[in-house]
Write a protein that binds this DNA or RNA. Structure first.
Lengths: 344, 344
DNA sequence: CTGAAAGCGCTAACAG
DNA sequence: CTGTTAGCGCTTTCAG
C-alpha cells in the first residue's frame, strides 16, 4: 500500500508537491508533475480517501435519499443520478427509506455523520425540524419532487401534468373520466398526488364535467393495488367510466390488466393514460406523460455538485421545472362503447 | 461542531475514555460512560466518520456492485441488502454498472479507493486480473449469483431451477416447450442463463423430448425484448410451442403480453412460467419460481459483515445455495389447444 | 513554484 | 479502568 509519501520520495519532491500534482490544485512545474504521476503509476498508488477527506473536508461522496429503490421511477432516477456522479468521480451513498421503515434512522443518524458532501432528496417531505437538522449539518441539499421549504428543488408541474393527461382524454371525446392517484393528505407523495389530482379536477371542471367521488380512486402507486382498485371500479357497467387517468405508469399497468380481465377492450371500451415513461408501457401500448426520470436524476446531481463545488456562492434559482412529454400510444382513443348509456 | 475532545472535557474524562465509552470497545466504568453519553447528547455530538475511519481503518461502509439498479431482481436484492446494512449501522455505497458503461471505472478506480469495509458483488463476472486487483486491495468480497472464483458466493442452483420449471410444464402434459433465456456464452448473466438453459435441456432430454433450436430463444432479460422474441415465435401456428419457460419474470410478462396480443388464451393455448418472484406476477397470474431476492440481499450482507468483522478468521463455507419456491398461479395448466397438430 | 510543519478528529497501544 | 502519547495519510497554510 504505497502512500503519497512514497510517491513523493520516488519522484524526488516533497509530499506537498506530490499532493498538489496529484490533485491539480495549486501550481506545479510540469517537470515535477510528470515525475509525480510517473512515480504514482509505477507504485500503483491509490489515494486514501479517508485521509484526504479528513484533511480537506471534502469526501467526494453524495447521499441519495429516496422512499423506495424498488419502484421504477425511483430506480430510474437513481440511475440518472448515478451516471452523473460516476462521471464526476463521486461516490453515491444510497439511503432507501423503504417506505418509512428507515426514515428516522436515515434522517436522525446516517445523514448527520458528515461523510457526505451533499444530499439528493427524492420525493421527500421533511418537517421543519428535520430540515433544520440537516441544514445545520452544513450539507448542501437538492430536492426532487418533494416539497422542501428552503431547499432548491427540481420538480415537474404536477398540476399541469394532471390537466394535460385529463385534457388528452377529454379532447378524444371522453366525458366519463376516472382518476387513480395517491393519498390525499398525509401520504409520502403528498404534493405529487394532490397536484395531479388537482389538475384532473381542474380539467374536468373546465370542461363542465362532474368529478364523481367514486371515480377518484386512491392507491399506493403499485400496479397490484391499482389493479384491485380499478377492477372494483370497472366491475359495475352502470358506473363505469370510459377513461382512466393514472398518476403513474405502474398503476396504469394495473388498470389495463384489470380491464382486460373484465373483458373490456382497450381503447375502445376504456382508455388509459399514465405518468412516468416506463419502458414496459411500449408493449402494453400505454399512452403516458413521460417525465424522463433519468434526466431528473442527472440534472439534480448537476445542480447539487454546483452547490457543493461553489461552496454555496451562487445559490442559483431556487426551483426548477422539468419538462415532460406526452407519448401517445394505443391505450387511448375516442370512446367507442357499444353500450351508449350516459352518465347519471 | 462539537468534537470528541469537547465531550471528554465536559464529561471530565480523557479523550480516550470518551472514545471507549462512545464506541463500546474496551471497558469503561458505568459512571464514566454515563457522564460521556450525557455530555455527548448535551453537545449534540456526532462523530466524524472520516476521522474515525482513518484512525481505525474501518469505515462502516459497504459497496454494492450490480449491473442494473433498474431491473426488478437487482433493485429488490438491493433493498434486502440495504435493510441488513441499515440495521447494522453501515452505509451502502452503490456502484451501478449500467450494463457495462461503468464497469471499468468501478472496478479500476472506485472500488480501490479503500473507503469500503467490504464489497457485495451481484451477478458479476470478473476475470482473474480483476479478481486479483480487488482482493489485493484487501477488501472482503461476497458474491451473489456470479461465478467468482476464489470468492465466497451465494447462489441458487440455476440448473435445478431450469429443470424444475421445465418439469412443472412437462408434468402438466406439455411436450412442446420453448425457453427464453439470456445469451449463451459471453453475456453478463452467463452462468445464470446457461445454467437455467441447461436445466431446461436436461429436463427435456430426460423426458425424451427434442429441444428445437427455434424454441431456444435469447433475450436481454427485459420484458420488451422478450415480448418481441416471443411474438415472433408464437406467430406461426405450425411451429408454436404450448408452453414457455422464461428465465425471468420480466421476460415472462413480455411473453404473456405477446401471446395475448396474438389472441392466444393463457393457459389454455399457452402456459408460461417465469423465475424471480416479481410482485406484478400476481395480477398477471404468473406461475414462477420465486428466488426471494430480498432474502438473498440480506443473507449476503450477513455473510459479508461476518467476514468484515471477524477480520477473515473463519472464512465459512465458500459457497451457499439459496432456496427457491415454486409459486403456481393461473398461467400454467395442461395444454388445451383446439388445434391438435403435433410437433413436426 | 516548492518545502517544512502543523494539523484534520479520532483510535490504539502502552503504561499506570 | 483510565490517561498519555503517537500516529492514521493526506492537505494546507506559511515561508522561502
Amino acid at each position: 500500500m504505497a502512500g503519497i509519501k512514497d510517491v513523493a520520495r520516488l519522484a524526488g519532491v516533497s509530499q506537498a508537491t506530490a499532493s498538489r500534482a496529484l490533485s491539480g490544485k495549486g501550481s506545479v512545474s510540469s517537470k515535477a508533475r510528470e515525475a509525480v504521476t510517473a512515480a504514482a503509476s509505477e507504485l500503483g498508488f491509490v489515494m486514501s480517501y479517508h485521509a484526504s477527506s479528513l484533511a480537506s473536508g471534502r469526501s467526494h461522496n453524495i447521499g441519495v435519499v429516496l422512499p423506495f429503490v424498488n419502484r421504477w421511477y425511483f430506480a430510474t432516477l437513481l440511475e440518472g443520478a448515478n451516471s452523473a456522479l460516476m462521471d464526476a468521480g463521486y461516490d453515491l451513498t444510497l439511503y432507501d427509506f423503504q417506505g418509512d421503515r428507515y426514515r428516522e434512522s436515515v434522517l436522525g443518524d446516517f445523514l448527520l455523520r458528515k461523510r457526505l458532501d451533499g444530499v439528493l432528496a427524492v420525493s421527500l417531505q421533511l418537517n421543519s425540524h428535520e430540515t433544520e437538522q440537516i441544514l445545520a449539518a452544513g450539507i448542501p441539499v437538492v430536492g426532487v419532487g418533494g416539497p422542501l421549504p428552503g431547499i432548491p428543488t427540481l420538480r415537474i408541474d404536477d398540476v399541469e401534468v394532471g390537466r394535460r393527461a385529463t385534457n388528452h382524454l377529454l379532447s378524444l371525446g371522453h366525458t366519463r373520466v376516472a382518476h387513480v392517484g395517491g393519498e390525499h393528505e398525509y401520504g409520502r407523495n403528498f404534493q405529487i398526488s394532490s397536484g395531479r389530482r388537482a389538475g384532473y379536477e381542474e380539467a374536468m371542471a373546465a370542461a363542465g364535467l362532474p368529478v364523481r367521488e367514486a371515480w377518484s380512486l386512491i392507491s399506493d402507486y403499485s400496479a397490484n393495488d391499482a389493479y384491485r382498485e380499478t377492477k372494483q371500479l370497472l366491475a359495475d357497467p352502470a358506473e363505469r367510466p370510459t377513461a382512466i387517468f393514472c398518476a403513474s405508469d405502474e398503476m396504469a399497468f394495473g388498470a389495463i390488466l384489470a380491464a382486460r380481465d373484465l373483458g373490456l377492450r382497450i381503447p375502445d371500451e376504456l382508455s388509459v393514460i399514465g405518468v412516468d415513461g416506463h419502458e414496459m408501457g411500449e408493449i402494453l401500448g400505454l399512452t403516458t406523460i413521460d417525465q424522463i426520470p433519468r434526466n431528473q436524476g442527472m440534472r439534480a446531481v448537476e445542480r447539487l455538485l454546483a452547490l457543493v463545488q461553489e461552496d454555496g456562492k451562487a445559490a442559483g434559482p431556487a426551483d426548477e421545472l422539468m419538462q415532460t412529454r406526452l407519448v401517445v400510444r394505443s391505450s387511448t382513443s375516442a370512446p367507442r362503447t357499444l353500450d351508449s348509456k350516459t352518465a347519471s
